[in-house]
Design a binder for these strands. Structure first.
Length: 573
RNA sequence: GCCCUCGUAGCUCAGCUGGAUAGAGCAACGGUUUCCUAAACCGUAGGCCACAGGUUCGAAUCCUGUCGAGGGCACCA
């Protein structure tokens, strides 16, 4: 509907420009964009096109608007238009065409607002990608929830989505994990063991649990008898599996599953990383050079060394970036561009990465590298998720992985519940830092917006049960006369439902899943407000049928939205 | 020193590819339950949109600067 209206107006704009002739032609016509006014009196859609056009033509905005309305050929659904304010064109739609949305929602069900497109673009959505060296913290959880919901929203709009977890199972941190595990295994197995945990190792209890699990399946004596490098290789693999199993379990508790777990190690083992570096060297995109010492940070051990540097400055980065460390092994950056190249080669049209804000400085170099390799700009598309400040009763909960004092994501999910965690993480834009208070999120009261939306859903279910009790049988949606729905509250609900596809479209195109959550809160508010003013199960059979259809449609859209967010839609609360 | 994000009601946040009177929840105050779930609803109060310039017919929104918060800045991931 919106597009129909826009193209109608666009034709009128072009006609108006033609009237003026001269240097104005259709190609120079400003783009007509309709908006939904905040104020109801301003119609269902509003357009500001007369203002910029007036500037172009040297006449008054209101005169331009008048002439446009003379020229335009509206689709039949338009009931009236008017010109308001400095020159806004306000468009009012016929109620019938609005209300027919109810039958459409019931016919389409879960598909309402969705787009299915077998030729649609494919996208790899990479998120979480936490090191398999310990449990996930709350910040990981936010990225996980945002990534998961974003993937769902994209899928709902015709994108063929694959959810992917990049396992950082190579590098020094894994060595630390392995050493920590071996320490705990010896501690558990050797009587009178009194060594101190080595510097840099992970002190958390989860390591002890992991060590116990591995010992349950592997004999300590056999392990101890192995040559050290052989034992390290085996233990690091077992440790990673163990940590990954824990992470998957934590993700499952949040209702998240991935299509692919991609191991960084395989990129090294297959020679993909070295191959990439060689290729870049052959292409002259890499050179041997020395980087200046980093600014603003105390670095005692800086020493100028020649390194293989990627010319990312040619593609908008601040400095060239090293691909290999002093000891010759590839940097994380080298592996990561090999990884992104792999994704690109797998044929994805879009690469979308959800990263924590602490990786913000990393964006331009990966985009630069990928542009150098594929020629595509802004690839990957990176969504930076800001930090979560965990508090309890307003006091910050200090977290340190090294000290082993952090609150894990799992503890929070267990304490607060999956739905509350997910919804709270999804009601805010990712750019804003998020305060998450354990005591507030735990309360099952109105400080928790998730219950507000879920309650609206449960409430419709209660109405449906009541209708059934009273012997009111819902007619086929097509045969319900919706003309009795004339009150302010009813019309508001219809308008909210009508806007739903646009909400999904915007959430997908802007990579902003929070729009779904805020939209659901508005719909829920409309439902609650309606509920208190009007009864559904009433004597007047025609009215009862119309209202029943309305609330069923509301329920359907609430359920659709909650499903996208991964939040349950309970029938009773 | 440089780069990124943020600064809107007492609190948590929407509104930001420029539009009409800056919104919601919580907290505060007052009201609503013979009636489909009060986890709800209705009302009142609450604002120099951090600050200062600029662009524009029009700026919370765009640009520049200042201040403040968070994150980042070779050989970690």
């Amino acid at each position: 509907m919106k597009q129909e209206l826009e193209s109608s107006l666009q034709l009128a704009v072009e006609a108006l420009l033609a009237e003026h002739g001269g240097e104005h032609d259709a190609a120079s016509a400003p783009q007509v964009v309709l908006t939904r006014p905040k104020i109801r009196e301003h119609g269902d859609y509003a357009c500001n096109i007369a203002m910029p056009l007036a500037g172009k033509l040297g006449s008054k905005p209101r005169d331009v608007a008048v002439r446009l309305l003379e020229l335009v050929q509206w689709p039949p659904a338009v009931s009236s238009t008017d010109i308001a304010g400095p020159g806004f064109i306000n468009i009012h739609l016929q109620e019938a065409s609005e209300a027919s949305v109810l039958a459409r929602i019931m016919a389409q069900g879960n598909a309402y607002g969705r787009v299915t497109d077998s030729d649609g673009p494919s996208a790899c959505v990479e998120f979480v990608s936490a090191n398999p060296t310990g449990p996930m913290h709350v910040g990981h959880g936010r990225g996980a929830v945002v990534g998961d919901a974003l993937a769902s929203v994209l899928a709902a709009r015709g994108v063929h989505v694959s959810r992917e977890y990049y396992i950082n199972d190579a590098g020094a941190q894994i060595g630390k994990l392995t050493a920590s595990m071996w320490f705990r295994m010896r501690e558990l197995s050797i009587s009178g063991f009194d060594e101190e945990l080595p510097e840099g190792c992970y002190p958390g209890d989860y390591v002890v649990d992991g060590a116990r699990q591995i010992l349950a399946e592997h004999d300590f004596g056999t392990l101890a008898a192995l040559p050290e490098d052989e034992r390290d290789a085996l233990l690091s693999s077992l440790s990673i599996d163990c940590m990954l199993a824990m992470i998957r379990d934590d993700l499952a508790a949040l209702g998240i599953r991935f299509d692919t777990y991609f191991s960084e190690r395989t990129l090294h083992d297959s020679g993909a990383v070295q191959g990439l570096i060689k290729q870049l060297r052959d292409d002259g995109k890499v050179y041997l050079g020395t980087l200046p010492p980093p600014m603003g940070k105390e670095v005692e051990d800086y020493q100028p060394v020649e390194q293989w540097l990627f010319r990312t400055t040619d593609y908008g980065d601040d400095v060239d970036r090293p691909l290999a460390k002093q000891d010759g092994t590839p940097t994380y950056f080298a592996a990561d561009i090999a990884y992104h190249t792999d994704k690109h080669n797998r044929g994805f049209d879009r690469l979308i990465d959800i990263w924590g804000a602490d990786h913000g400085g990393y964006v331009s170099r990966v985009q630069a590298a990928m542009q150098a390799l594929t020629g595509k700009k802004h690839q990957p598309e990176v969504v930076l998720v800001q930090m979560v400040n965990l508090t309890r009763e307003g006091k910050p909960v200090r977290m340190s992985k090294r000290a082993g004092t952090f609150v894990t994501l799992r503890e929070v999910v267990d304490e607060v519940g999956k739905d509350a965690v997910r919804f709270n993480f999804l009601t805010r834009r990712v750019e804003s830092q998020l305060d998450f208070d354990l005591e507030i999120a735990k309360q099952k009261n109105d400080e928790n917006p998730v219950y507000y939306v879920q309650y609206a859903h449960a409430r419709v279910c209660a109405i449906q049960r009541k209708a059934e009790e009273e012997g009111v049988v819902a007619l086929s949606p097509d045969s319900v006369d919706v003309s009795p729905l004339t009150s302010e509250e009813e019309r508001r609900l219809v308008r909210e439902l009508l806007a739903w596809p646009e909400v999904l479209e915007q959430a997908a195109s802007r990579l902003e899943p929070y729009r779904v959550a805020t939209s659901l809160m508005q719909l829920a508010a409309g439902l609650h407000s309606f509920y208190h003013k009007h009864r559904v199960v009433v004597e007047d059979a025609a009215l009862a049928q119309a209202r029943l259809l309305l609330v069923r449609a509301v329920r359907q859209v609430l359920a659709n939205g909650l499903e996208l967010l991964g939040v349950d839609a309970p029938e009773r609360m």
